[in-house]
């Protein structure tokens, strides 16, 4: 379990890092290393060069913009902000409560202390919580390369299993998670084999309400398809007889693995979907009530 030989660079500026990546087809970015280093050790990945971005300046931020009313309001997370730092930010949790709800399910404290939230997004694991959360919240990722900068909306970020749409020479510099609008609510639940493991099934809900009535309801799923999936279940959620889980399952592909059968995963989707929807609606109504009394 020792990596194959590779060159190692630890540039001090973003420009140098981008140049290094551009010059090497086989180069890879190293952020927290919590996903990449195990792959290297098992020789499942053998990059020619590792471009360690941990010495780059100004990428460790967790910044909240606006008070949640405006379109550009939300949480901006730099490429070097660790899961633990995002989880600990009270401002981030106030702006977008789903971040902390989901992050508490990401791995264990020691891994959250090193692993970066942006790294998790571009690693694009359909079993990971944050890629799905970014999709559900309709956030985005800013990436840079020697060719310039661009913003990739969440809906366009995930290409396939463990595959993002970043070019090999691009560095994700910042992720943006929109603030939770007034009258909206979120919830997250997951079932894992052991505490902190990747989920067998994880489900998050985002609902918008007006006067206590649901106007939009979307549900995101972890570990029930190859890429993070978000399903709009507004109709089913508005109908007291509706079956939002059934609606969602039509768009999911729960698979068998050594930990769970596809039938069990589908069953968990049925159990968890109504629960998180109910929680999210409750959350939205609570927030509306607080908003009014404030």
């Amino acid at each position: 379990m020792k990596p194959a030989p590779f060159a190692y660079l630890r540039p001090a500026t973003l420009e140098d890092a981008l140049a290094a990546l551009a010059g090497q087809q086989g180069a890879k970015v190293l952020a927290g290393g919590q996903s990449l280093v195990p792959l290297l050790s098992m020789r499942l990945a053998a990059p020619s060069t590792l471009v360690d971005i941990n010495a780059l300046p100004d990428l460790g931020h967790v910044t909240v913009t606006g008070d949640g009313d405006g379109a550009g309001d939300g949480v901006r997370i730099g490429a070097l902000a660790r899961h633990a730092e995002v989880l600990a930010s009270a401002e981030a949790a106030a702006s977008q409560p789903l971040l902390a709800m989901a992050l508490s399910h990401v791995a264990h404290p020691t891994i959250r202390n090193r692993g970066t939230t942006v790294g998790s997004l571009v690693h694009a694991d359909a079993a990971a919580e944050m890629p799905m959360v970014l999709r559900l919240l309709e956030g985005s990722v800013d990436v840079a390369s020697v060719r310039g900068r661009r913003t990739i909306p969440a809906a366009e970020l995930f290409a396939g299993p463990l595959e993002s749409t970043l070019a090999h020479d691009e560095i994700a510099v910042e992720a943006f998670f929109p603030a939770l609008a007034p009258g909206a609510g979120v919830a997250f639940q997951e079932i894992a084999r052991r505490h902190g493991d990747y989920a067998l099934v994880g489900v998050a809900a985002h609902v918008e309400t007006e006067g206590g009535e649901v106007t939009r309801a979307r549900v995101g799923f972890v570990s029930v398809s190859d890429v993070p999936v978000v399903v709009d279940v507004t109709g089913a959620a508005q109908d007291p007889e509706g079956d939002p889980a059934g609606a969602a399952l039509a768009e999911l592909e729960p698979a068998d693995d050594i930990h769970a059968t596809s039938a069990y995963r589908a069953h968990l989707v049925k159990v968890l979907t109504p629960r998180v929807l109910a929680d999210a609606v409750h959350h939205a109504r609570q927030r509306s009530a607080q908003g009014k009394s404030a």
Partner: peptide, 27 residues
């Protein structure tokens, strides 16, 4: 939690602590 998940060809599918589920203190 634990088992050795061999497939029909005799490959051990869970030869790591990621997939061989030794309980944590939380379990």
């Amino acid at each position: 939690y634990e088992r050795m998940a061999y497939d029909e060809s005799g490959q051990l599918l869970n030869a790591s602590f990621m997939d061989f589920l030794m309980p944590y203190v939380t379990e």
